[in-house]
């Protein structure tokens, strides 16, 4: 039982480490393409305009942009990969608690996942 716990901890450590590395590589590529195409445009971030798009719209928009090799979309992709590292960490923890037969912590981890799911729901249309 102790061994599975240690192995999963190691896997989680690696997921976090390589997750961040791939985020850096993808975002630098996207950043270079973005700067190459837009470096002389002027910026205006002084006023916030609120969007209201569901996560599905956001992700499909990003994937379309990546297919067209848009710099902005590739940076967005890196940010999505970054979001996946803690999510993957949660799922791996869930797996490790299931393997250990720790019902209490399977339940606790599921609550955390449900809350993350709720935030997707609340973020749109409210």
């Amino acid at each position: 039982m102790q061994i599975t716990d240690k192995i999963i901890q190691k896997i989680i450590g690696n997921v976090l480490k390589y997750g961040v590395r791939s985020v850096l590589i993808i975002s630098i590529i996207g950043g270079l393409i973005f700067l190459f195409n837009h470096s002389n445009e002027t910026v205006a971030y002084g006023r916030f305009t609120e969007n209201d798009r569901s996560i599905v719209d956001v992700v499909s928009g990003i994937l379309k942009g990546v297919a067209n090799l848009q710099g902005r979309a590739i940076i967005y992709l890196a940010i999505l990969v970054l979001f996946c590292t803690p999510l993957l960490r949660l799922l791996l923890s869930l797996l490790s608690f299931i393997l250990e037969g720790d019902k209490l912590y399977v339940f606790i981890t599921s609550i955390v996942l449900v809350i993350i799911g709720f935030s997707m729901y609340f973020g749109f249309g409210h």
Binding site: F34, Y45, V58, A73, I79, F83, P86, S119
Partner: peptide, 22 residues
């Protein structure tokens, strides 16, 4: 994980701008 919970909301609300985040 904590930041992820609010980031998902921010992403859908348009807080996350790749030009600034990068």
């Amino acid at each position: 994980v904590t930041a992820l919970a609010s980031c998902v909301i921010y992403l859908q609300k348009g807080y996350i701008v790749p030009d600034i985040c990068l």
